[in-house]
Measured scan of single mutants.
Amino acid sequence: NKFNKEMRNAYWEIALLPNLNNQQKRAFIRSLYDDPSQSANLLAEAKKLNDAQA
Rank of each mutant, 00 (worst) to 15 (best):
E13I: 15
A27H: 06
L16E: 06
Y33H: 05
A52I: 11
K25E: 00
P36L: 06
M7D: 02
Y33S: 03
N22R: 13
Q53C: 03
M7I: 08
Y11M: 14
F3Y: 11
A44W: 14
N21Q: 11
K47G: 04
F3P: 15
L17W: 03
K2Y: 07
A44Y: 14
W12Q: 11
P18C: 06
L49S: 04
K48N: 13
L16I: 07
L49Y: 07
F28W: 03
P36T: 04
M7R: 02
S31N: 10
Q38S: 08
I14P: 00
I29F: 15
A54R: 02
Y33C: 04
N4S: 03
L16K: 15
K2F: 11
R8G: 03
L16C: 07
Y11N: 02
A52D: 08
S39I: 14
Y33W: 07
I14R: 00
N41I: 12
N22T: 11
F28M: 04
A10G: 02
S39F: 10
N1T: 07
K5M: 02
E45H: 09
Y33K: 04
N50F: 01
L17K: 03
A10S: 05
Q53I: 11
D51T: 09
A52Y: 10
N50E: 02
L16F: 11
L43Q: 06
N22H: 11
I14C: 01
Q53Y: 09
A40M: 13
L43N: 02
L32Y: 01
E45N: 12
D35V: 10
P36Q: 05
A40N: 07
A52S: 07
Q53P: 07
D35E: 10
A54D: 09
D51A: 14
K48G: 08
P18W: 06
I14L: 10
D34Y: 11
A40D: 06
K48E: 12
I14G: 00
A27K: 08
A54P: 09
S37R: 09
N19G: 06
M7E: 02
W12F: 13
N21S: 10
A15D: 03
S31A: 12
D51V: 12
N22Q: 11
Y33A: 03
K2S: 12
L43C: 04
A27G: 06
A10T: 10
R26L: 09
R30N: 03
F28P: 00
W12S: 08
L17N: 02
I14Q: 00
I14F: 04
K47C: 03
E6G: 02
R30D: 02
D51Y: 14
K47T: 04
A54H: 13
D35S: 12
N1W: 01
R30Y: 11
N41M: 14
I29M: 08
Q24C: 02
D35Y: 08
S39P: 04
E13P: 01
N22D: 09
N19D: 04
D51F: 12
P18T: 10
